Amino acid sequence: MPNISQKGISMPESPIRKLVPFAEKAKKNGAKVIHLNIGQPDIKTPQIALDAVKNNDLSVIAYSRTEGSEVFREKIAKYYLKHSIVIDSTDIIVTTGGSEALSFTMGSIADFDDEIIIPEPFYANYNGFATAAGVKVVPVVSRIEDNFALPPIEDFEKLITPRTKAILICNPGNPTGYLYSKEEIQKLAAIVKKHNLFLVADEVYREFTYDNTEHYSILQEAGLEENAIVIDSVSKRYSMCGARIGYLVSKNKEVITTALKFAQARLSPPTYAQIASEAALDTPQSYFDDVKEEYLERRNTLIEELKKIDGVKVGVPNGAFYCIAELPVKNADDFAQWLLEDFRYKGETVMVAPAAGFYATKGLGQNQIRIAYVLDQDSLKRAVTILKEALKSYIG
């Protein structure tokens, strides 16, 4: 039989999706599964985006421009201007989701066996993108005891080698909800300039910050024009995960020119999704104010309920809609699978994402889970009750 590639063998499974078969079996057997495992908001997509697709008069669904339609990119630039970020439409490449933007970035800035430093835990698919690109992830550990704050700068500096090409952050963070301060961004900016590296920031959760905090983009940092690359997306901002529209943004013209070659190989981003996304940019601020308030209430409810469970430790997120919880178990993977296969509380169970897959350092996160608080407060309370009862039974 022909052999599968070593790259394919080493491609990691998604900790978010690998338990899906067990969840589907549980549902077929009559259980109700509350999904805490995936960041699929239940917030309604802006009607303006839905209507743009419904009411369009296209007679041919043609290829769009490789970098995305000019009108769309101009509107994206205006969106950034509202957030005190000055860019031009030529600094933007529209991609098939933020995932493709990150893949293009890795392909553009790193060669096989080059290194990218990433604070962990990090979005699990970064491991997958890096494996696909032949890039080595070099983790720098942040800890739940410090609420996943940026590790000391010395921790980054000692990891830099001649093969290091970039530092990658998610701000606000998935899976921790950590929001980097302006001072932390400036410290990272100083490192990448000193060592001639790129600073890549996944900023898809920019709108969702809490407790009177504000997001500070790497594109706002003066003197970082040649180093800064932003990954962005409409998925979470407008509750349009299925649209699969993202963008790569950089003032570094060489980065944009190179990424465009990768984009040309896939021809163009999807036409209907761009129509919806372009319309979504006209969503009024009141939509975000309401959504942000809803997520804040959900966060407070979730954290308050989790803290009532003996032996559970939880990081308090200042952004996005995720948190990491540390459980009094040895192996969260086994626990998560057991929840789906064997445990029911009043006919219900919960699906969580084991956190080990959000780390690159082997052995870390074994007793942690990621929870996405994208459900209504009643569902979150019920889910935590189920978790509490499950832990009693599992530990017993």
Rank of each mutant, 00 (worst) to 15 (best):
S69R: 13
S99A: 15
I169Q: 02
R299M: 04
F148R: 00
L102E: 00
D282T: 12
L81I: 13
K82L: 12
L375Y: 04
N174I: 15
S99L: 15
G347W: 00
I76N: 08
P269G: 12
M1C: 13
T176H: 10
I144Q: 03
Y322R: 09
L267K: 15
F129I: 11
K44A: 14
L281C: 06
V374T: 02
S268F: 08
A276E: 00
A320Q: 08
G128Y: 12
T385P: 00
I48L: 13
Q368I: 03
Q186K: 11
K27E: 13
T209D: 00
Q186C: 05
G246F: 06
N125T: 11
L340A: 07
D290P: 07
E145T: 14
R73N: 03
L339G: 05
V234E: 00
S250A: 12
I275W: 02
I144N: 08
G246L: 03
L188G: 01
A133W: 05
F72A: 01
L302M: 06
T271R: 13
Y345S: 06
S277L: 01
M240T: 06
G39K: 01
S142N: 01
A132T: 12
V86R: 15
A360I: 11
S286N: 10
Y359A: 02
D232Q: 05
Y238H: 06
I4R: 15
K28Q: 12
A77L: 04
N331Y: 01
P41W: 05
Y180P: 07
T361F: 10
H215N: 11
F148H: 04
M240W: 05
P270H: 10
R344N: 00
V200K: 02
N171H: 03
I218P: 01
E203D: 11
A360G: 09
V138A: 05
A273D: 12
P162K: 06
S108T: 15
E221H: 11
A383M: 00
L58N: 07
Y123E: 10
K313W: 04
K136A: 09
G107R: 08
Y178N: 10
Y216P: 01
E254Q: 11
I76W: 02
G98E: 12
L188I: 07
S5Q: 09
S217A: 14
A228M: 08
R143A: 13
Y373K: 02
G97K: 03
T131K: 07
R244Y: 11
P151T: 04
I371D: 02
R299C: 01
K32R: 15
F198V: 00
G8N: 14
K236P: 10
P328E: 05
P121M: 06
P354E: 11
D91I: 06
E293G: 13
I153N: 10
Y359K: 08
D88L: 14
V86S: 15
E305V: 00
A259R: 00
G8F: 12
